[in-house]
């Protein structure tokens, strides 16, 4: 599965510009699912299985997009001013490299001098140095989009890359759709767009799919690093079953179902209360007359930096847990 992960994280796809990643997924799933289609907002909607007598339409959602930047001005000396697409924190930007989608060119992020060596300017006082010395030599226009550029590193049990948020969810969903054999459900694997700018793709996808049950696959923060904010989630303790985040409260029946499934399959899991951020599950929950939702989270350190770290065991166990859950009828207590 590491090959799939590498391929996905090394492809670029900031919010609204997910087409390259989507093409990679389409290729991976060719012949592996019953149907594939792309909707108006660019969501890739894949289906497998028939809704049997005890079956439901279950929507799984992993977002294709990653955070990125967009050029706002190119100054006379060829420095590119920019703003963020999604949650780019200034402290994670300086010294970073970005690759523009159109040209494939790489630039380096610099920052105007700061009185204090320990504080960071906002993005408005940063720029991208494309290695040019005048505007005419820069092949970047206002509105051009770039993503952070950092190679995949396999540390053995731990994997590091940019865009683990949420390509690791995408990889898990690809693997789940591929491996899923017998299911009483119509399983709809949605590779969603524009999550990082406000859960936009999953919201319209959920309206279109009109599922009976929804599960988002996304990363979550951990509390297992020095002086980390209080959180019991740790890398390597299994996938996290979300109870609540700042934008969504999981349906308690779905949480109970996921927990029971993990216990039955003897898979490790942890419970998660996240104090910041939210996922596609929010978009699914609010669709039409409402959808019972949950979220399977992959613990991830350094989220929204170019070096997001996940545990390979958690990734594999996520696939196993999803397959275990989807292979049986669902009874929400």
């Amino acid at each position: 599965m590491k090959d799939i992960i590498r391929q996905l994280v090394e492809t670029t796809g900031p919010s609204g510009y997910e087409n390259e990643v989507r093409a990679v997924v389409q290729k991976m799933l060719k012949g592996q699912v019953d149907s594939m289609k792309v909707d108006a907002l660019g969501n890739l909607i894949t289906r497998k299985g028939q809704k049997g007598q005890d079956g439901l339409t279950i929507m799984l959602s992993a977002h294709l997009d990653e955070i990125g930047i967009i050029a706002t001005h190119i100054d006379e000396r060829g420095f590119v001013r920019f703003t963020s697409v999604g949650g780019v924190h200034p402290r994670n930007a300086v010294g970073g490299r970005v690759r523009f989608l159109k040209t494939g060119q790489v630039g380096v992020i610099g920052m105007e001098p700061n009185q204090s060596a320990t504080s960071v300017h906002g993005l408005d006082k940063m720029y991208i140095d494309m290695g040019a010395s005048r505007r005419a030599d820069v092949k970047v226009s206002v509105g051009d989009v770039a993503a952070f550029d950092r190679p995949f590193e396999d540390l053995g049990q731990r994997l590091v890359s940019k865009a683990m948020d949420d390509r690791i969810g995408v990889a898990i969903l690809v693997e789940t759709m591929k491996q899923l054999k017998a299911t009483p459900h119509e399983v709809v694997g949605v590779f969603s767009t524009q999550e990082e700018v406000g859960i936009r793709g999953a919201t319209t996808a959920a309206y279109g799919v009109d599922p009976d049950l929804g599960i988002a696959l996304d990363v979550t923060l951990t509390g297992d690093t020095p002086q980390a904010a209080t959180m019991e989630v740790a890398l390597g303790n299994g996938p996290a079953i979300k109870v609540k985040d700042s934008g969504m409260i999981s349906d308690p029946r779905v949480v109970a179902w996921m927990e029971a499934g993990a216990k039955r399959a003897r898979l490790p899991y942890q419970l998660e209360v996240l104090s910041g951020g939210t996922t596609d599950a929010r978009g699914i929950q609010m669709a039409r007359a409402g959808v019972p939702v949950g979220c399977l989270s992959i613990p991830c350190r350094y989220v929204h930096t170019p070096s997001e770290m996940v545990d390979y065991g958690d990734v594999q166990n996520s696939v196993k847990l999803l397959l275990a859950l989807l292979s049986k009828p669902v009874k929400l207590a």
Binding site: R282, R288, A289
Partner: peptide, 12 residues
């Protein structure tokens, strides 16, 4: 938390 109750009941 989310106002989703009114949103979804209104729709339904």
């Amino acid at each position: 938390a989310t106002l989703f109750g009114a949103l979804t009941s209104g729709y339904a």
